[in-house]
């Protein structure tokens, strides 16, 4: 049997987790934790219910800085009008996560801290330079989001530590992003490959870019080499393709029931250029606002 502890404050939560290190795990939306406890993938003695803690939810914008509380529901990200303009990759990633019911319960923090290599939120936040804010018995600390992930199902958080919020960079103009993925089904599926890209431009020239991948390495992967390739260019197809090849070389997928390693690497080389091109078209204003990335990946620039 599992007992549930409902803390009133963050300090109480952290204190309890620290005291019951290894035997207590936090639960927010519960969409992963409850499945894990039921299938025996984890067997905690205590669940620490974070869902009523104050101050850990919400989407706030301060200039170019987005603050996203760890308890923010995925559905709230999906429906946020400001994020729909400024952080399209994040919204596109939210839209394809589970079902409406799952998204209404699941939280951003939970999606990150579960450590699933195929999770949607990590790549979408990585391309927005997210920083994770963490609290534990030792106080508060901030780390680049990429440093949160330790391996499949594992993070670098101590047993007493909680992710409280994310800070991310979301420019209001001359920036664009995109999230694409390969799945077996068209909904309710885990990514076989997930790709997020963001681009910032001056005029049409790329000044900054990020590419992040899901499901093709033990952890969500930020691909530095791919971004260096595209900076300073007008992101023509050849350059985007080259970035795709670099991303494919940087990842280390496995073969499983969702596809072979070779296939996944090839899909990375296909989806990275697409995501970069769409992000660039969005940054330069060539992509009509509100138009989603084509779910089938098939579009021609004449369609725009």
């Amino acid at each position: 049997m599992v007992d549930v502890f409902v803390p009133d404050t963050l300090d109480e939560a952290v204190g309890f987790l620290g005291h019951h290190a290894g035997a207590a795990i936090p639960i927010a939306g519960g969409t992963d934790v409850l499945v894990d406890t039921r299938t025996g993938r984890s067997a905690p003695e205590w669940l620490v219910d974070l869902s009523s803690l104050p101050g850990l939810g919400g989407v706030e914008l301060d200039g170019e800085v987005l603050r996203l509380g760890a308890l923010t529901r995925i559905r709230a990200v999906e429906l946020d009008p400001e994020l729909q303009r400024r952080a399209v990759a994040l919204v596109e990633a939210a839209k394809v996560l589970g079902s409406v019911q799952i998204r209404t319960m699941a939280t951003v923090g939970g999606n990150l801290c579960h450590g699933t290599p195929s999770a949607e939120m990590p790549p979408a936040l990585l391309v927005h330079d997210a920083v994770a804010e963490i609290v534990g018995l030792g106080g508060r600390r901030s780390i680049p989001l990429a440093e949160l992930f330790a391996g499949p199902g594992r993070t670098t958080l101590g047993p007493d530590e909680l992710l409280t919020s994310l800070r991310a960079r979301v420019r209001a103009s001359s920036a664009g992003s995109c999230y694409l993925r390969q799945t077996v089904r068209w909904s309710m599926d885990l990514a076989g490959v997930g790709v997020a890209a963001s681009v910032e431009v001056e005029g049409t020239t790329v000044t900054s870019a990020r590419v992040a991948l899901a499901a093709v390495a033990p952890v969500p992967l930020l691909v530095g080499s791919a971004t260096e390739t595209v900076v300073g260019t007008d992101l023509p197809s050849e350059v985007a393709d080259e970035a795709g090849r670099q991303a494919a070389a940087a990842c280390s997928p496995i073969s499983d029931a969702r596809g072979t390693a070779d296939y996944r690497r090839e899909v990375v080389s296909v989806l990275v250029p697409r995501a970069l091109r769409i992000a660039w078209l969005r940054a330069t204003g060539a992509w009509p606002e509100g138009v989603p990335a084509p779910v089938n990946g098939v579009w021609t620039e004449e369609d725009l």
């Binding site: 697409r274 089938n296 990946g297």
Partner: peptide, 11 residues
């Protein structure tokens, strides 16, 4: 159907 030749996904 519509086929994505890049990923092999079929709609």
């Amino acid at each position: 159907v519509e086929v994505d030749p890049g990923t092999g996904m079929v709609r």
